[in-house]
Amino acid sequence: MKRLFLLLALFAAMALVPLVVRSEFWLNVCILTVFSALIGQAWNILGGYAGQFSFGHALFFGVGAYAVAVLQVHLGVNPWIGLILGAAFGAGVAVAVGWLTFRYGLRGSYFALVTLAFAEVFRILANSTPWTGAGEGIMIKLSPRPSMMQFKDLGHYYWLLLAMTLACYLTVWWLDRSRLGARMLAVRDNEDAAAAIGVDAFAVKLQAMALSGLFMGLAGVFYAQRYLYLDPGIAFGPTESVEALLVAIVGGIGTLFGPLMGAVVLHALSEGAQVALGSLPGANMVIYGTVLVLMVLFMPRGLASLTRPRSRRKGGRDA
């Protein structure tokens, strides 16, 4: 309960941001940060809790984004309905991919690589199908009305995103204390041992996929409505896949607050590097990458390990 209280207090404080921060720029930075926290947590459900590393999470992000865009542009489906459908498509595609890959017993780096390949397949398909706009991309008509999920006020976008993110973090809070969560951890730590004590690893992993895909899909819906333009590279390219796993791993995988911390630190780092080094192209990214490497060298358990001296995670897995 203490963690729930902490979580709700944190999100309540975050909800005040648009009232306090009147700068569009900083609000934008907050949006990018919360967005990272959302996709990082979505990745964390599958990667951190169920132990299935994905390199292709952009797949579910892209499916959600294209779902809301295509339905809206071609069929006139309201984006609020699109939001539900986008999340459902994200979850559905995740389950389908999971069913196919887990059925054939793919684990570890094999699973990671197959998710990457699926994201590429979707990128290529989106690049060649007329109803996704193919290579030209798809543009949602500018219509800044809340009923069309487009807001004049950046704060409203922020609150929409924050609500999605809260739903995601509450789900993970619930996972932490539910039987499903416990089963996920069992599967992560030793799949064969979990199976021996009667855990249906296949079903557990599918459920993790579904939850993970659902929240990635939601993130995709948000992206589409915020920027109103998608192309196959934006939707299914490696950017979102890398960001999701980066945020979660830096923060500390398998922890409730890890992805949030990871998101805050990485965005602070990115902004800070830019302020420090200004306009020399590439210099800011060199600092960013260097700090990343140093963090792994000196903080191997992620940021979350700083707040809790005794991690619940099983340590020292032998590679």
Binding site: L32, Q274, P281
Partner: peptide, 22 residues
Amino acid sequence: ILGDSRSKPDIGAAETAKAVEG
């Protein structure tokens, strides 16, 4: 006011907001 969009639309938008605010 120099901004780097890092070849990404969302970063481009953020940098634009920053410049406008600057």
